[in-house]
Design a protein around this nucleic acid. Structure first.
Length: 535
DNA sequence: AGGGTAATAT
DNA sequence: AATATTACCC
């Protein structure tokens, strides 16, 4: 089943002639895929019945190099059985269903990839990569000696390519680039280590680097796509299948897990490496980081072995709504005090984004929150039709953020809330606690901003005297001085039976527990623990 | 070293 | 116009 040395050695026109087992219960879909594959000169044997396929691989394991297996809601078990039986056969799952858990289970059980139907030509064309990957990365247990020559021959082939045509080997070149200088690059490198998906070698965990147009169309989109759709509102990955697999990635992780945001690096037209072809195959929520040329002070003139300059360095982030949403979510999750670039960056978990990017965005974000440039910004950031909005803000610019916070400072509350982020929905990671009787939600147009300046993000790390936590929403509170704020907070703390002032969020269970343990209380009745606050 | 801000460059 | 970069300070 797995390619042997002889299989690959001297293979003419690889991957032509690669033998594909196709198992698809949907006969028309199967026929279509078979046709396409055959057009690409794969050799396809198609099965509609899983038992037939199973017996085929068990009786003649050498017959196939790669398998494509359809997953439906009704045949999970059969497919999982197939995966089990076909451990050595690189297997690609295909499906109409968009179930993260199923995908994960398939991958966990050894599937190389999970592709959504309909399968594009590119996806099909690239299935050979799994064969090579398997040949090279056969599970530690059994690396057949027979595969070693393959590896060697391919390695030498790659080297050859590198010498002969500079633009050919993307991965090598990437590594060259990535071994460069800034943090961004390090992240890229890490990303590539962590997610060595064979069919998406150019894709660093959702990040798209567009160096060479010529290779770009070879990319598979892998399993990034469908996850994107479920992100926005419902973060739920609970499906009927295998929650246990997913549970470990709850909360924060959860939202980032389907990290399909792509950050792409554009070819710098000036560096002579050819034009970039940016293929946005997943345009709806991509993060685009593209380069702009500028080889100023930095010694960024990296060269590949052929002396080709790969100098483009400056990445430009496209702060898409989605990216911004993540940003805001991170900021809110951190709270005002903790919202510093590095931490935000951490929380956002967006590969390719640098601290500088975040800092820059943060700067702008804060600027707008503070309305230091109310007039101009209001026009550009807000599409509000309400002319009164501008007059909302006090004349005096308010330093909304420490440092340093002066004790008699007036809190910058209830500022104008430009719908900066195209966020029509609450950031799911932040749950505002609203007392009974208060409207559970706020109009979208004020959402993104309402919570920030006055957002109280629980009492994690909270010093009750920390003014930045002690703000409420009502315009009345505009006049709140520190003492009053303190009073409110103290009252809230001392009278836990009362609802919190609007805008206050109850402390997380975690912080409560940690606070209790600081005070020497280590055991808590389980029912308290049970009502865990999602934060 | 890293953060914040403002000015400036791209 | 939106971001990045820079300079300067904390």
């Amino acid at each position: 089943m797995v390619c042997t040395a002889n299989d690959l050695h001297g293979w003419k026109d690889f991957p032509k002639g690669l033998r594909v087992l196709l198992l698809d219960g949907d006969t028309s879909s199967a026929a279509e895929i078979k046709t396409k594959l055959e057009e690409m000169e794969y050799v396809v044997v198609s099965y509609c019945n899983e038992n037939d396929a199973l017996s085929a691989i068990s009786s003649k394991p050498e017959t196939f190099h790669v398998a494509i297996v359809e997953v439906t809601t009704s045949n999970h078990e059969g497919n999982f059985k197939f995966l089990e039986a076909a451990k050595d056969l690189p297997t690609i799952m295909i499906s109409n269903i968009h179930c993260l858990s199923t995908m994960m289970k398939c991958i966990a059980l050894g599937a190389m990839e999970f592709l959504q139907k309909p399968l594009s030509d590119d996806k099909l064309r690239n299935i050979w990569q799994h064969v090579v990957h398997k040949a090279f990365n056969a599970g530690g247990s059994a690396v057949p000696n027979s595969l070693k020559p393959i590896k060697e021959s391919v390695v030498s082939m790659l080297h050859l390519e590198l010498e002969n045509s500079e633009n050919e080997n993307q991965v090598e070149k990437k590594l060259e680039i990535l071994s460069g200088d800034d943090d961004n690059n390090h992240e890229l490198l890490e990303g590539s280590d962590k997610y060595p998906a064979p069919s998406t070698p150019q894709q660093k965990h959702g990040m798209r680097l567009v160096d060479d147009g010529d290779c770009q169309d070879q990319l598979n989109s892998s399993l990034e796509k469908e996850c994107g759709e479920q992100d926005g509102e419902s973060k739920s990955v609970e499906t009927t299948c295998i929650n246990s697999l997913v549970e470990g990635t709850s909360q924060v992780e959860n939202s980032q897990l389907p990290d399909r945001e792509a950050i792409k690096e554009e070819e710098n037209s000036a560096d002579g490496c050819g034009a970039a072809s940016n293929i946005d195959h997943d345009t709806h929520d991509q993060y685009n980081i593209s380069s702009s040329e500028k080889n100023k002070s930095k010694p960024c003139g990296l060269s590949n072995p052929c002396g080709i300059k790969v100098s483009r360095k400056k990445l430009k982030v496209d702060w898409t709504p989605e990216l911004h949403r993540k940003f805001v979510q991170a900021v809110e999750q951190l709270g005002v005090n903790q919202a510093i670039p590095s931490r935000i960056l951490e929380l956002m978990k967006v590969e390719g984004l640098t601290r500088h990017n975040v800092a820059s965005h943060l700067q702008k974000y804060r600027m707008h929150k503070r309305h230091i440039l109310p007039k101009e910004e209001d026009r550009s950031w807000s599409h509000s039709k309400d002319p009164m909005r501008k007059n909302y803000y006090p004349q005096r610019p308010v330093m909304a953020f420490p440092p340093p916070y002066h004790s008699n400072h007036i809190m910058p509350v209830a500022p104008i809330y430009p719908p900066w982020g195209h966020m029509a929905c609450p950031s799911p990671g932040v749950q505002m606690w609203v007392p009974p009787g208060y409207p559970p939600w706020r109009p979208p147009e004020i959402w993104p901003w309402k919570s920030y300046p006055g957002h109280i993000s629980g009492f994690e790390n909270a010093d009750p005297y920390d003014k930045s936590y002690s703000i409420a929403f009502s315009p009345i509170d505009l006049q709140l001085a520190d003492e009053e704020i303190d009073k409110v907070v103290k009252e809230a703390i001392s009278k836990p039976w009362l609802p919190l002032p609007l805008g206050l969020k109850p402390p997380s269970t975690e912080s409560v527990l940690s606070e209790l343990s600081k005070q020497g209380i280590s055991t808590v009745p389980s029912h308290i623990n049970g009502s865990k606050v999602i934060q």
